[in-house]
Design a protein around this nucleic acid. Structure first.
Length: 574
RNA sequence: CGGGGCGUAGCGCAGUUUGGUUAGCGCACCUGCCUUGGGAGCAGGGGGUCGGAGGUUCGAAUCCUCUCGCCCCGACCA
């Protein structure tokens, strides 16, 4: 491709809206253009990268035995009612209706649709297992779209769904997908870690997330030496023991309008770990429960829900809190809260001399000792891990890092096949629901994650496999006939070998061309200049390492190809 | 949804506090000359309903009201 024949529009200045590196560089390099919050146009070179990543995904999926198809983005709302997810997904779904008032959603994921499809087309155990996938635009009405392609309203996703005759085979496919995912991200040049993950609105029992390690990531990965690696939502943790202080007599203190732990800590001049927070949760229609946690921890609702064996928990409304505690919101406490089921986080075990709400307006108790003053029957790990906590399995201190979720795999069981009737007849003629798995790759997000991990002060540092072009032929003295001639020859020669090459045929000054080349980040750059050409030399550069060699003209292609191979092998992660 | 910030040329910004000629600057863009190893130089030029609507005023980018959009932080944390 010639620069003049495609459309490449770089920006000289940082766009004001871009907060993180990947967003900034993708805008500046002219890969994407914002239409509106969370909505982006892929410009030609952005699209080219997208296609390359999609091709890798396709290749690995096909090799792993998955079958590509394509399902509608526009989906009738009823099918989501049928699976029970219309309410569960709630506001996350973009909704619309047709001229007759029939209600539709724009697919945020396709479990319902694929399961419906399978229910219509698969009858026998002989047709199974099957593993379908598609690469398609997905829509999610995010609370707050941000960071460019990382959290968008509309994004490209590979979603796959497997159907097995039994749990055992479902596990086999799950493992195959898990391994294929590892290969996909490694071929895309991403440094990822696999973490145990919560199944969230998808349901099912086992799930792993593929996290691209990045400080700007929105997810927190918790691990310890030799122990499990898990998403913060799921990571088991054990708080350090509470200090063995002497008990003091319980005392009521007036705390007018002081509700938040931070405000109270200020008032009592103690740190936040000298409190017990009491949260009132509603479970299902009519159950209410009190949950205790030390003041410096936060309740992890995922853990709480798992502990209670329910799919969701939510904080009780103000009226409920008043009814069960006898005090307005902000003054709940475990002392004397006898009628309510109480469950406490491990951080509360044996704690002495702390402050809690007194179940009375504008009042708190001081010098509470749980074993003396409260009746707590149940303890569990219910809070998010914080630095200083240890892994319950290894006893080692937990460490934390951030990641961008680029893929997730789930074992779904029969949740969807049962509700949507995806059943088959087994060898004995018995009707059984298929055992499902589902597997997602954020294709557009993968690109952003790559840029997040692979850039320097000049721009993006692509690996050849997903670069917009592998080779850039860069003539710098555009009014020298010989320079043009040689550049054209090198360009044509690479083209004739089916290489992915771009010729910068613009009549721009050298500085402009070099800056653009490095900003977009073409992995191998062949620079043809008058000065070197007099000595019969051209320069071949490797973007990632900034290394550069001058070689005789006749060796240019050979050297460029070698450089490209080398570029593919360099793992260069910030 | 709550809080904060911002909308002035394609991009980045000044001007708004204290209303007053024809709304500026840099980059980009167009024409010509010149230049060619790291975002050159000179000369000339085009481009704005100052996010939108309404109001106050002799007069509004500037003041008031409403509204739309964008960015950041936080989202039941007792």
């Amino acid at each position: 491709m010639r620069w003049s024949k495609t459309f490449i529009a770089t920006l000289r200045e940082d766009p004001q809206e871009a907060e993180i590196e990947s967003h900034r560089l993708m805008l500046r390099a002219g890969m994407i253009q914002k239409l509106s919050a969370g909505l982006y146009t892929f410009l030609p070179i952005g699209l080219k990268v997208l296609r390359k990543v999609a091709a890798i995904v396709r290749d690995e999926m096909d090799k792993a035995g998955a079958i590509e198809l394509r399902m509608p983005i526009l989906q009738p709302e009823q099918i989501w009612e049928k699976s029970g997810r219309l309410n569960l997904m709630g506001e996350l779904m973009m909704k619309t209706e047709d001229r007759n008032g029939r209600r539709f959603v724009l697919g945020p994921t396709h479990e319902e649709i694929i399961t419906d499809f399978v229910s219509r087309r698969i009858r026998s155990y002989k047709d199974l297992p099957k593993n379908f996938y598609q690469i398609q635009t997905k829509f999610r009405d995010e609370i707050r779209p941000r960071f460019g392609l990382i959290r968008a309203k509309e994004f490209i996703m590979k979603d796959g769904y497997s159907f097995s005759v039994n749990e055992e085979n479902a596990k086999v496919i799950y493992k195959e997908m898990y391994e294929a995912y590892g290969r996909i991200f490694s071929r895309c040049g991403l440094k990822t870690e696999v973490v145990e993950a919560s199944t969230g609105v998808m349901g099912g029992n086992v799930s792993h997330e593929f996290m691209a390690i990045a400080d700007t990531g929105e997810d927190v990965i918790v691990s310890s030496k030799g122990g499990p690696v898990a998403n913060r939502e799921l990571a088991a943790r054990m708080p350090g023991p509470n200090p063995d202080v002497s008990e003091k007599a319980l005392k009521k203190v007036d705390t007018p309008n002081l509700k938040r732990v931070e405000e109270l800590a200020d008032f009592f001049k103690v740190s936040t770990d000298a409190f017990i927070k009491t949260l009132i949760y509603s479970i299902g229609e009519d159950q209410t429960i009190g949950v205790l946690v030390r003041g410096d921890y936060e309740i992890n609702e995922t853990k709480l829900a798992i502990c209670l064996g329910v799919s969701q928990v939510s904080l009780a409304c103000d009226e409920t809190i008043e009814r069960v505690t006898g005090a307005p919101v902000g003054f709940a406490g475990p002392v004397g809260l006898k009628k309510l089921r109480i469950i406490a986080d491990e951080s509360v075990r044996g704690i002495k001399d702390v402050i809690t709400g007194a179940n009375q307006v504008d009042t708190h108790y001081q010098h509470v000792s749980v074993n003396r003053d409260c009746e707590i029957a149940e303890y569990a790990d219910l809070a998010f891990a914080i630095p200083g906590d240890v892994c319950p399995k290894t006893g080692k201190e937990l460490s934390f890092k951030r990641g961008i979720e680029v893929g997730q795999v789930f074992m779904l069981g029969t949740k969807y096949s049962k509700s949507l009737g995806a059943t088959f007849l087994d060898e004995n003629g018995k009707d059984k629901p298929a055992v499902m798995g589902c597997y997602g790759v954020g294709v557009s997000r993968t690109i952003a994650a790559f840029v997040e991990q692979n850039s320097d002060e000049a721009g993006i540092t692509w690996i050849p496999e997903i670069a917009p072009y592998e080779f850039l032929v860069l003539p710098i003295n555009t009014n020298e006939e010989q320079v043009i001639k040689v550049s054209e020859e090198i360009y044509e020669s690479l083209l004739s070998q089916n290489k992915d090459v771009l010729l910068d045929d613009r009549k721009e000054s050298p500085g402009v061309k070099f800056k653009d080349a490095d900003l977009i980040g073409f992995p191998v750059q062949i620079v043809i200049g008058k000065r070197n050409l007099i000595e019969g030399l051209v320069e071949v550069r490797l973007r990632r390492t900034r290394e550069s060699v001058k070689v005789p003209l006749e060796k240019a292609i050979e050297t460029a190809l070698q450089m490209c191979e080398k570029a593919a092998k360099i793992s260069f992660v910030k």
